[in-house]
Design a protein around this nucleic acid. Sequence first.
DNA 1: TTAGAGTTGGCCCC
DNA 2: GGGGCCAACTCTAA
Length: 527
Amino acid sequence: MEAATAATAAMVWFRKGLRVHDNPALDAARRGAGRLYPVFVLDPRYLRPDPAAASLGSARAGVARVRFLLQSLSDLDARLRRLGSRLLLVRARDDVGDAVCAALKDWNIGKLCFESDTEPYALSRDKKVTDFAMASGIEVFTPVSHTLFDPAEIIKKNGGRPPLTYQSFISIAGEPPEPVMEEYSELPPVGDTGEYELLPVPTVEELGYGDISQEEIPPFRGGETEALRRMKESLKNKEWVAKFEKPKGDPSAFLKPATTVLSPYLKFGCLSSRYFYHCIQNVYRSVRNHTKPPVSLAGQLLWRDFFYTVSFGTPNFDQMKGNNICKQIPWIGNEELFVAWRDGRTGYPWIDAIMIQLRKCGWMHHLARHSVACFLTRGDLFIHWEKGRDVFERLLIDSDWAINNGNWLWLSCSSFFYQYHRIYSPITFGKKYDPDGNYIRHFIPMLKGTSGTTFQHQYELSSEVKMVHHETASKECRKRMGEAYASSRLDGNPIEGKPSNVSRRKMSHGDQDASSPSIAKLLKRSS
DNA sequence: TTAGAGTTGGCCCC
DNA sequence: GGGGCCAACTCTAA
């Protein structure tokens, strides 16, 4: 028996979870393995420069996130090498799943371990690989370790549908599992890779992003090593951790951000959310008082899990149509306004500075994201949240499918949050945090080297340049939102759990969409 | 049916 | 900078 397991070849397939600490997939793969194949598949769609894209980057990601990923891979490789292993980089010709299946077969793998991923793209990719592995008699292990909790488990506990409020999520969730913090002295040796061309981790320059003449390179370096360093640095200040209240942070702080900026590390799994949570709890135990969810630091991790859970349990979560938790709103398409917003040319220095920071750094403060998201959608331009979502998804180094879509649903008052009269002013809100204009001067080229306050700059830049007049535009938006909400009340609330409205609508208006089984059932019951 | 809650608005006053 | 008011949304729990 011992001899048989010692010869077993195991593969740990990295996708997210680019770390050694608290990595149950890695831990399971190395146990009893004679040979270990730590694999990452390079996806050309994610990495190859796309000249047709709206900004420097690939078809799927801006160059800042591509670089962050490469740095993370490089760090992971270095950490594995210290344990006598290495990262095997395999290039996918076309489909990532196909590349994994081929390697499983070619290397005669007996056991495959990879972290569970709930995004729709990942689910279909992983199903294909799992089906192939099972059919080939390969043992498959897919632990949940990207989030604190198992989204499927939470949904089950909530009676089969995801909790739609933070509080209900909290009351169901309980305490997350402890991180697996095994210290390895060494990992099993890497097995023979035959004919495979194994690549070193490329740099962005080597990928063909030759001429990156950006003045500003994101100050955030990818990788587990940096993630752990950054986390320890943040947690060292116990008073800061204990008093952390998200809404009180300063969105205009760019040299020393008001938050931990650990989101990109959580996104790629360079940092384990469970380990981070565990360390925060340790800090809490050592102080007399600390803030509580939703505003506390630990509360931020719970928000992350909240959005992961809702996104997993909601069909078409990333679009308005066919998404039954999303208000149906007749957004107006205006390409010129959209492009001006995207490229930081609205004429509102506060909005423009944020969008330029996004492009240059791939990160901005949460409240800054609120500001520009509200401005694009229900606040001023009345443009579809999906358009803004796409821009964030591309440019943010921390862009995360569940969280990004969830927040756009939120900010556009399409779901979760419905107080559309509360609009962030593109003038007042910025002035409050950046009265001296330091933030806008730093990011807006036209204002570089000038003096004066935000207020004055607004006047210098404004009148002729401004795309819309906030006073009138926001008034018009309020009106349109009111109409959209009124018509959604008439048509039946799209949010599930309002059967009376749904059935009333279906009876009186005939049926355009009986695809949902729950609606079909209600129809039967009411007729 | 209704009261109360909901991660983080603006404005005015002190 | 904190408090109260404005004007107002939906959803949940009772």
